[in-house]
Simulated assay, not measured.
Amino acid sequence: MTAQTDVQEFRAFLQEFNIQEFRPLRPTFTDPNPRETASILDQAADYVARVGLHQGMWWGGDPLDIHNCPVCISGAVSAVIYGSPATHRGTPEQDALRRRAWNALRERLSFGGSPVFWSDTPGRTAEDVVGFLRSTAEALRRLADGLPAGEHRPVEPVRVQGERL
């Protein structure tokens, strides 16, 4: 079984039980400047699209050319905020912006947990990560515009043959 097969099987499981991999931002989710956070996530998506996805560490490749190495989702956000995928601390303003971006990403994952673990799932692609970053940015823009972040689809109960619910 390959890593790509693992992701395909997981997606088939989600689809079979009508489960969304990502959830909308809850109406109670707050961000003092969702447009700024959305811009950071769009830039992080552009960064991953440009340099590629790296799994297992913040960045990989030639350490002498760190700004053109593949990055994980965390490295992409750091590259945009701090100027380097290898930096995870900066000014208080930068650190607050990183927390805001990270909170939005974590909020969107249906099963909770870390965006890093999601990004590092074997078989995950750069396109998956770019799509997740962009869709979260769009959800933040909708929040800023006062629009619903998305609708929760009702989940049909799983029925055993002949069972009445």
Rank of each mutant, 00 (worst) to 15 (best):
56 G>F: 03
48 V>N: 09
136 T>K: 03
140 L>H: 05
149 A>N: 14
20 Q>L: 14
65 D>Q: 12
149 A>H: 05
105 L>D: 00
41 L>D: 08
115 P>W: 04
147 L>I: 05
55 Q>V: 11
100 R>N: 03
41 L>A: 05
109 L>W: 02
127 E>R: 11
77 V>E: 05
87 T>D: 13
131 G>E: 06
72 C>W: 02
124 R>A: 07
120 D>V: 10
11 R>Y: 04
35 R>H: 09
108 R>K: 09
1 M>G: 15
86 A>G: 08
67 H>Q: 14
116 V>A: 13
28 T>C: 02
35 R>F: 06
153 R>V: 11
78 S>Q: 01
9 E>S: 12
22 F>H: 15
8 Q>S: 10
91 T>K: 07
11 R>W: 01
109 L>D: 02
3 A>N: 11
156 E>A: 15
44 A>V: 05
80 V>I: 07
52 G>L: 09
160 V>L: 15
119 S>R: 04
8 Q>E: 14
135 S>C: 08
41 L>Q: 02
117 F>L: 15
114 S>I: 07
139 A>R: 05
71 V>L: 05
138 E>Y: 09
24 P>M: 11
152 H>M: 11
6 D>Q: 14
134 R>Y: 00
121 T>P: 09
1 M>V: 14
104 A>D: 00
19 I>F: 05
101 A>S: 09
129 V>T: 09
35 R>D: 07
29 F>C: 01
162 G>L: 07
108 R>N: 00
92 P>M: 06
109 L>T: 05
125 T>D: 08
124 R>K: 09
34 P>W: 06
96 A>W: 02
16 E>L: 12
88 H>G: 10
161 Q>H: 15
110 S>V: 07
20 Q>F: 08
66 I>A: 07
